[in-house]
Design a protein around this nucleic acid. Structure first.
Length: 803
DNA sequence: AGCACGCCGACT
DNA sequence: GTCGGCGTGCTC
C-alpha cells in the first residue's frame, strides 16, 4: 500500500480523475484516504485529496507525495463516499465535491517564490538583483512582476543561480496561546520558594499561585491574577521551575455573549402528537423523512430541540440547517441556550478562522450539535442521530454554483447512511415536499395552531388599482397610511416589507393589473429596455410591449420596480414623526449591524422597521402589531414557475411576524392583483387550498413536482456558435430521452449575455429517465473536453433558478 | 488552472 | 538573425 490515488486541486475536465503518487517511506502508514497532501503536479506543487491507497499502479513513473497536510483525515469514509455521490448526482468535478464539504480555511493557497539556488551566492547575481536576495530572502513572484525583473530572474534561473519554488500554504493558522505550568513537583516548588531572593517578592507570589493551584494556566491570566509582568514569569521559566508551552485555542465568536440556559418546555398536545413518530424513529434507528408542517408560531423549534435532546442522550449527533438569512442571534440563542457548549455554529458572519474552529470542534467530537446554513449539512459527524432542515421551502438550500447540490438531498443521502431521521420543517412547505408527504414518501406531521391559542393575524388585501383610480398615486394605500399613524399614536410597532427584486421587470397594466404572459409557458414575459421588447426566458417567445392594455385598453401599461430607499424618503414626507429603521443589503453590510438594527428596533428606538427579504424571517417581537407588504406583486411576475409559490410563502412568512404575543396583529397586503390565488389564499392562511391550485398548474405545465427538470446552459462569444451548439445538444437530448420527456429550446437564457458571451439554454422536463444523468454526462464530456472551441456547457440538475 | 513547447511577425 | 506573441496539450 505505498501508492496513493489523489484528486488534484485543478478543476478541469482533463484533471477530473485520480492521479497516482508514490508514498515515501517516512509517510507510509501515516497517509490515509481523506487526507490532504502536497503533491508535485507538472512544474508546480499543489494540494490534493487522497481518495485511496493501493499496492500497484498502471502508471509506471510515479512521482512522490511531498508531504501530508493533515495529521488525520479531514474527510472520513462516509464523506469521501458522499463526495462521489455529489459528483455523480450534480455532475461536478470531484475536487469541488470535496472542497465544498470543508471549511474555506482548508482550501490551499499557492505562492510562487524565487530563491537563491543551493550552492549559489548573491555575488553570482547581477548587481540589480542583489538587494532582492540578501539574507536568503524568498522573493515573491508577484513582487518580481511589479519590479519588472522577471527576464533577469529567468536568465539567472537558467544559469542555475536561482530556483523557482511553488509553495502550498494553509489559509488559516490554528490560534495558539501561551500557557505556563509547573516544571517540577509540588513538593519541589514548596522547597524552591524559600530559595527565591528576598527582593524577588513577585516571583514568590507567582510560585505561591502555582502551589495553591498546581495546574496549567494561560500566561495572560496568570499575569493579571498575580498582578505581575511577563518578565517575572519568564525569570521563573529560566530557572526551570515553570515551563512555557503553547496550546491551540478556539476563536470564540460568542466571547462577549452569555446564553441564558433554558429547560425543555412542556409540549402542547399537538406538539406531543407530532414529536411521537420522530422519537420513535430515533428509538428504532430508522431512516425516515418527516415533514413537519406547522403554522408560524406553532412551536416547531421546541420539537427540534427536544428531538435533539433525545439524540444527544443516545450519544449521537445532530445537524440543524437554518436559512442563512434567518441565522440570527435569536435563533442561535435558542440552541446555545438549550445545549450550551455542545453547539457549533457555522454561518457566513464568522471569519474564516472562526468557521474553521467551529468545524474543528465538530471534527474533534467536542460538540454534539451543528447549527448552520446550507453547507453545515456536511458537518463531519460520524454518528448522526438526526438532521433537521428548518424553513425547508427556502431556495437558499440549493447552491447555485458547482457543486449545485440541494441540502435536502444531501441530508437524505447522509441519513440513509446513518439510519437516522430527517425532519423538514415549514409553515409553507415546498410543493415538492408536500407532494411527497401526500404520497407517503415523507411522513407528514402537522401543527395546525399557534401556541397559546393566539389566532393568526387578520389580513386585509388592498387593491392598489382602486387606490390609483381614486387619485392616490403614492405607494401607500390610505388604509395602510391610517394604520401606520394609528400604531405610532398607540406606541406600537410596524414592519413594512418591500420586495426589491424589481430589476428584471415585468410589464403590467396599472389600471386592471393585467400582466403580459407567454402564450406557451404561462410565465410572465420579461421586459427588455433594448428595443422595447418582452421575452420569454423559457421558450424564447418574443413580443413588443403593447401600447394599450389588451384587457382594458388603458394606456397606463408599463414596467415595474421600486426600492427601499425610495420608500424611506416617501415615508419621511407623509409621516415625518415616524422613526424608521431601514434594513437591506446597504444598511446591514458591516458585521454585527444586522444584530444592532434589530436590537434597536426591539428596544423601541423606532416605530417602523422597513426592509427586504431579510426581515421576513425569525422576527419575534411582542410589540409588532402591524405588518405591511407594499407590493405583493413584485415577486409574482418574475419569470419563474415557482413565482406563485414564492409569493405565497413570503406573504405567509411576513404575516407571521405580527401579533405573536399578547397584542393581536394585523396585516395589510397591497397588490395590483388581489384576485391572484397566491395572494388571496395567503391572506386567508389557506395553504391546503393553495397547494391544490398550484399543483393543478404545475401538472398542466409539466413542472415539478410532477416532472423533474434539468437545465443545460451553453455559452460562447459568437451568437451563431451558441445557437448551433445548443441545437445540436437539444437534438441529442431528444434522441436520448423517452417521449414522456419534454425538451425545450434552444432559447436565450434570461441573462442572454454575460462577459460578452452569449448564453442559450435547453430545459428538459422528465418523469422517469433512468439514463438522464448518463446522457447529460456524455454531453458534458463532449464539450468540456475540447477547450479550443471556446464553448462552455454547464448543467444544473434540478435547477431552482432557470438562468 | 498554470506552464512549457512551438511556430510565425517586428525589432536590435 | 533573435525576442516574444499566444495557440495547443499535459500534468501521476
Amino acid at each position: 500500500m505505498q501508492i496513493a490515488s489523489v484528486i488534484v486541486d485543478v478543476p478541469t475536465k482533463q484533471t477530473d480523475r485520480a492521479f497516482d503518487y508514490f508514498i515515501p517511506e517516512q509517510w507510509r502508514g501515516v497517509i490515509q484516504p481523506g487526507m490532504r497532501v502536497i503533491i508535485p503536479f507538472g512544474p508546480r506543487n499543489i494540494q490534493g485529496f487522497v481518495i485511496g491507497l493501493k499496492a500497484e499502479s498502471e502508471f509506471k513513473k510515479l512521482r512522490e507525495i511531498i508531504a501530508p497536510m493533515d495529521l488525520e483525515p479531514v474527510l472520513n469514509k462516509e464523506l469521501l463516499e458522499l463526495g462521489n455521490w455529489l459528483t455523480e448526482s450534480t455532475l461536478c468535478f470531484k475536487i469541488f465535491a470535496f472542497q465544498v464539504m470543508l471549511p474555506a480555511a482548508l482550501k490551499a493557497k499557492y505562492e510562487k517564490k524565487v530563491k537563491l539556488a543551493i550552492g549559489a551566492a548573491v555575488a553570482d547575481l547581477p548587481k540589480p538583483l542583489h538587494a532582492f536576495f540578501e539574507n536568503d530572502v524568498l522573493l515573491d513572484w508577484e513582487d518580481a512582476l511589479k519590479s519588472g525583473i522577471v527576464p533577469l530572474l529567468q536568465k539567472e534561473a537558467a544559469k542555475g543561480h536561482l530556483e523557482v519554488i511553488y509553495m502550498v500554504k494553509e489559509r488559516v493558522k490554528k490560534k495558539q496561546q501561551k500557557y505556563i505550568r509547573p516544571a517540577v513537583s509540588l513538593d519541589e516548588l514548596i522547597e524552591e520558594i524559600d530559595r527565591i531572593p528576598a527582593k524577588a517578592e513577585k516571583q514568590r507570589q507567582v510560585l505561591r499561585y502555582f502551589i495553591e493551584n498546581f495546574n496549567e494556566v494561560e500566561l495572560k491570566k496568570l499575569v493579571t491574577d498575580v498582578n505581575t509582568s511577563v518578565s517575572t514569569v519568564k525569570a521563573l521559566v529560566e530557572k526551570k521551575l515553570l515551563k512555557e508551552f503553547e496550546m491551540e485555542v478556539y476563536r470564540n465568536p460568542f466571547e462577549h455573549r452569555t446564553f441564558k440556559r433554558t429547560k425543555p418546555l412542556p409540549l402542547t398536545e399537538a406538539q406531543q402528537t407530532a414529536i411521537g413518530p420522530i422519537l420513535n424513529a430515533l428509538e428504532q434507528n430508522q431512516h425516515e423523512v418527516f415533514l413537519l408542517y406547522g403554522v408560524t408560531g406553532s412551536g416547531k423549534t421546541e420539537i427540534y430541540l427536544q428531538s435533539i435532546q433525545e439524540v444527544i442522550e443516545k450519544g449521537k449527533e445532530a445537524i440543524v440547517l437554518v436559512p442563512e438569512i434567518a441565522l440570527t442571534p435569536q435563533m442561535v440563542n435558542r440552541f446555545k441556550g438549550r445545549f450550551g457548549d455542545l453547539v457549533a455554529v457555522l454561518h457566513s458572519g464568522l471569519s474564516a478562522g472562526e468557521k474553521y474552529d467551529e468545524w474543528r470542534k465538530i471534527q474533534r467530537k467536542e460538540v454534539k450539535v451543528a447549527v448552520g446554513a446550507r453547507s453545515a449539512i456536511f458537518a463531519p459527524f460520524e454518528n448522526l442521530g438526526i438532521m433537521i432542515i428548518d424553513e425547508e421551502h427556502e431556495t437558499s438550500y440549493k447552491q447555485e454554483e458547482m457543486p449545485r447540490y440541494h441540502a435536502r438531498d444531501v441530508a437524505i443521502e447522509r441519513a440513509i447512511n446513518h439510519n437516522c431521521p430527517v425532519v423538514l420543517g415549514s409553515a409553507t412547505p415546498s410543493l415538492e415536499s408536500f407532494a411527497r408527504a401526500q404520497k407517503k414518501v415523507y411522513h407528514l406531521l402537522t401543527l395546525p395552531n399557534r401556541m397559546n391559542k393566539q389566532s393568526l393575524p387578520s389580513v386585509e388585501i388592498i387593491d392598489m388599482r382602486e387606490e390609483l383610480r381614486e387619485g392616490n398615486r403614492s405607494m401607500f394605500s390610505r388604509k395602510l397610511f391610517e394604520m401606520l399613524k394609528d400604531r405610532i399614536e398607540k406606541r406600537q410597532q410596524s414592519v413594512l416589507f418591500l420586495n426589491k427584486r424589481g430589476h428584471s421587470s415585468f410589464v403590467m397594466c396599472r389600471d386592471c393589473g393585467y400582466v403580459v404572459n407567454c402564450p406557451n409557458c404561462d410565465i410572465s414575459l420579461t421586459y427588455h429596455r433594448v428595443n422595447e421588447q418582452m421575452k420569454c426566458h423559457y421558450c424564447g417567445y418574443e413580443s413588443y410591449v403593447p401600447k394599450h392594455c389588451p384587457e382594458c385598453n388603458s394606456e397606463y401599461i408599463r414596467y415595474f420596480g421600486t426600492g427601499t430607499q425610495k420608500v424611506e424618503e416617501e415615508l419621511g414626507k407623509i409621516l415625518p414623526e415616524a422613526r424608521v429603521i431601514r434594513m437591506d443589503v446597504d444598511t446591514t453590510g458591516r458585521k454585527g449591524s444586522h444584530e444592532r438594527l434589530l436590537t434597536d428596533f426591539k428596544d423601541g428606538k423606532a416605530d417602523i422597521l422597513l426592509g427586504t427579504q431579510m426581515i421576513a424571517k425569525g422576527l419575534d417581537f411582542p410589540n409588532i402589531t402591524l405588518v405591511g407588504v407594499l407590493s405583493a406583486d413584485t415577486m409574482l411576475h418574475l419569470p419563474d414557475f415557482r413565482a406563485s409559490e414564492k409569493t405565497f410563502q413570503l406573504l405567509t412568512q411576513v404575516s407571521g411576524r405580527a401579533g405573536r404575543h399578547q397584542l393581536p396583529g394585523e396585516v395589510i397586503i397591497q397588490t395590483y392583483t388581489p384576485e391572484h390565488y397566491s395572494i388571496e389564499l395567503a391572506g386567508r392562511h389557506d395553504y391546503d387550498l393553495f397547494y391544490q391550485r398550484e399543483m393543478m398548474i404545475r401538472k398542466t405545465h409539466h413542472y415539478p413536482p410532477f416532472y423533474y427538470l434539468s437545465l443545460i446552459t451553453v455559452s460562447h462569444e459568437q451568437l451563431f456558435t451558441v445557437v448551433s451548439a445548443t441545437e445540436k445538444i437539444v437534438s441529442y437530448v431528444r434522441s436520448h430521452v423517452s417521449n414522456e420527456a419534454v425538451v425545450l429550446g434552444p432559447a436565450a437564457s434570461p441573462i442572454p449575455r454575460i462577459n460578452n458571451r452569449y448564453r442559450y439554454q435547453c430545459l428538459i422536463k422528465y418523469k422517469r429517465e433512468p439514463n438522464i444523468i448518463k446522457t447529460l454526462k456524455t454531453i458534458l464530456d463532449q464539450y468540456q473536453k475540447d477547450t479550443k472551441s471556446g464553448l462552455q456547457v454547464s448543467i444544473d440538475v434540478n435547477p431552482y433558478i432557470l438562468m
